[in-house]
Simulated assay, not measured.
Amino acid sequence: MDSLRLQHTAKTGSAARACIECIDQSHLTEAVTQSSPLFTVVDLIKRLESDPRSRGQFWKINDRASELSTGTAISTWPLRFSEPARNDERPLFYMTQSATSAHLSMLTSQTGQRGIILNDIESTPSRWAKGAHPWLPLWLASNRHCIPFDPATGDEARAILAGALDELYVQGSPGFCYMTLHDETGDGLVCDPAQAFLGMYRLNPQPPGAPHIRLLGAGLMLREVQAAARILHDDWGIAAEVWSCPSYTKLARGAERQSRHKRLLRGKAPRSSHLHDCLGNSQTPVVAVTGYAEFVAAQLAAHVRGPFAALGADSLEPHQRLDRHWIAMTALRELANLEQISTSMVSQALNRYRLV
């Protein structure tokens, strides 16, 4: 595979720290907003371009057809012919509209599997879930060079951007970060920046009493998960923990590393994973929801201690749409399987929400 053979230097880290400082400062100085991930990322890059601390400290590529203009770099090819650039890597922001794995594979091959890929496809009309060809999420999940994220809000996108700059360019970890971006504002979510980049964080306190269930959501599907939690509480008296999971893939890989570490150490205390730090050994049932195909959320199945169900764009019949009512019904079914509620409640929910 062709590669840029970029050299990580001390200046690489200092450039990334300047960008992180600017991103953090923008969050402290501006009024709290509920901007979309797309708006937030575009705004942050504009700030980085204008701030004296970060101006000239990063590379920006923008191949989005809607924003092509004179003087805008649209590929990384010029870097291949610049020996100074190859010998002194800088943070790379690549803004694109890549709907297929073939296009994204070509793009990341050009970048030498480096950079922060910012994919603006979800806000464009498409017959595919989240604007992505079905093979694209499979490619993202299976590509070990890639850390894929699906932020729900602008604050999550901001936290992921800063976290990726630190991991890739300050710490010098290999690979690239990928974010899919939508252009719908948040619903008052309060983000935990440190845990957002790790893959998940809780949005509400652990509910008292029983029965209760855990609902996990990513991207735009998080608002349906939150609505499902309200339905469970208001209509059925069931309390739900709600978790935002910007990266099911990162969570699953961390849990896999923990399991491997445990096998190799044979008796020594294994290091923990963020997934297990969050969910522990609880037998509380979990319903994980994604706007991609079901397998994206199902990556957690082998690593969750309690009963687990995954829901995705392909979980229902072609004429059905995954929404808050299906999520609530699935939660009720999981509780009924554990005999924590009556099975008649599942039938009632199917009729009440006209799901049959």
Score class of each variant (00 low, 15 high):
155 D>Q: 11
119 N>E: 01
253 R>K: 10
312 G>R: 08
215 L>D: 04
198 L>S: 15
290 T>S: 14
123 S>D: 09
104 L>H: 04
119 N>A: 02
10 A>F: 13
44 L>S: 02
130 K>A: 05
278 C>Q: 11
311 L>P: 03
71 G>Q: 07
273 S>N: 11
9 T>V: 04
209 G>D: 12
218 A>P: 03
139 W>R: 01
132 A>Y: 04
318 P>F: 03
42 V>S: 08
310 A>E: 12
173 S>W: 06
63 D>S: 13
165 L>A: 02
8 H>L: 10
350 L>I: 10
85 A>G: 05
197 F>P: 00
286 V>R: 06
305 R>Q: 14
175 G>V: 07
6 L>D: 00
139 W>F: 14
3 S>I: 03
210 A>M: 08
143 N>G: 01
249 T>S: 05
336 A>N: 07
182 H>R: 13
273 S>E: 11
127 R>E: 12
91 P>V: 11
62 N>Y: 08
243 W>K: 02
74 I>C: 10
248 Y>M: 07
344 S>D: 14
311 L>K: 03
307 P>I: 11
106 M>I: 05
151 P>G: 14
190 V>N: 08
45 I>F: 01
306 G>P: 08
228 A>K: 04
296 V>E: 14
217 G>K: 10
284 T>M: 13
255 A>N: 05
3 S>F: 09
162 A>Q: 05
5 R>N: 14
145 H>L: 15
113 Q>D: 15
49 E>N: 05
36 S>Q: 02
52 P>L: 07
169 Y>E: 05
163 G>H: 06
321 R>Y: 12
293 A>K: 07
345 M>Q: 12
201 Y>Q: 08
101 S>Y: 07
153 T>M: 06
238 I>S: 10
49 E>V: 00
22 C>N: 04
266 R>W: 11
70 T>E: 13
257 R>F: 13
315 S>V: 07
356 V>W: 01
